[in-house]
């Protein structure tokens, strides 16, 4: 346990949080703030950028340079911030709909480009703010306000998508495993390159209720029971892993980072930033 006082990073005047009782987003926000505290980033030099949705309300509560952008576009805005001033630490807060539906193109290209952003993707498998519509990560068969008979589509494996697209760091954690999640985020913050931390976050209000999970605790129990550490997952078959959440650091490689490569180009051309 760490003794970092994360309240120094809070805009307490804006509390209580907009999120519903039992929503995982507040837990994930705290895991982020603890991680930022451990790596020692100055809040004046840190920018938190988000898109639209429940998760994207996070920057409003965080005392940093904060930017709440348009739906799906947090990564492009963050890319501009980071390129204009590479000395800034840039954290992107996004959700499953924001990052992999409307913003899917930006997500994969940021991974390909390997630009030094830390993307914390809060995956609650639903569009919460708009009332529980099916998202790109809603499991097959689960109900949503636009999938009354159960979702007939296959969900994205977000971490797999980030890995395939070239992100240099990919990890998956859960709001239940908040301590471990914070450690994955810390590693992501320190990584030079695009980091994606997929954080599974229960949505008791519009997902749980519709899918026969009566209390927030029931949803956290499920997260706990579904979680399989990446090492153990390696020994399991695809069938065994079907409804599981593989947690841990999934990718951690060093490769050229975009803004560093661009700085080399400027130096080569004799320009000075």
């Amino acid at each position: 346990m760490d003794n970092f006082d994360y309240t120094t990073f809070l805009r307490e005047k804006k509390f209580p949080l907009i999120w519903c009782a039992g929503c995982g987003h507040g837990i994930i926000m705290k895991a982020i703030l603890r991680a930022v505290g451990r790596v020692g980033w100055d809040q004046n030099d840190t920018v938190m950028v988000s898109g639209i949705g429940c998760s994207s309300r996070m920057p409003g509560y965080v005392d940093m340079n904060t930017l709440h952008t348009t739906h799906g576009r947090a990564i492009p805005f963050a890319t501009g911030v980071k390129m204009a001033n590479p000395d800034l630490h840039v954290i992107v807060i996004t959700g499953d709909g924001d990052a992999t539906a409307i913003g899917g193109n930006h997500f994969i290209h940021a991974a390909r480009r390997n630009i030094d952003l830390t993307v914390v993707l809060l995956n609650n498998t639903i569009y919460g703010m708009t009332g529980g519509q099916v998202s790109p990560t809603t499991p097959r068969g689960k109900k949503a306000s636009t999938a009354s008979f159960g979702n007939v589509e296959a969900p994205f494996n977000i971490s797999g998508l980030a890995q395939a697209a070239g992100a240099s760091f990919v990890a998956r954690g859960t709001a239940y495993g908040a301590v471990q999640l914070s450690k994955y985020i810390e590693k992501g913050l320190l990584k030079k390159g695009l980091s994606v931390i997929e954080a599974m976050s229960p949505c008791p209000t519009v997902f749980g209720r519709r899918n026969k999970m009566k209390s927030p605790v029931e949803m956290y129990d499920e997260l706990r029971d579904q979680s399989v550490p990446v090492k153990k997952a390696a020994t399991m078959s695809e069938v065994e892993l079907e409804d599981k959440i593989v947690t841990g650091v999934l990718t951690d490689v060093d490769k050229p980072e975009y803004t560093a490569e661009y700085a080399k180009l400027i130096a080569k051309l004799g320009g000075s930033a």
Partner: peptide
């Protein structure tokens, strides 16, 4: 003092 309640409290 394990602080798990703090870690998992969504509402600070």
């Amino acid at each position: 003092r394990c602080q798990l309640c703090d870690y998992r409290c969504p509402d600070y």
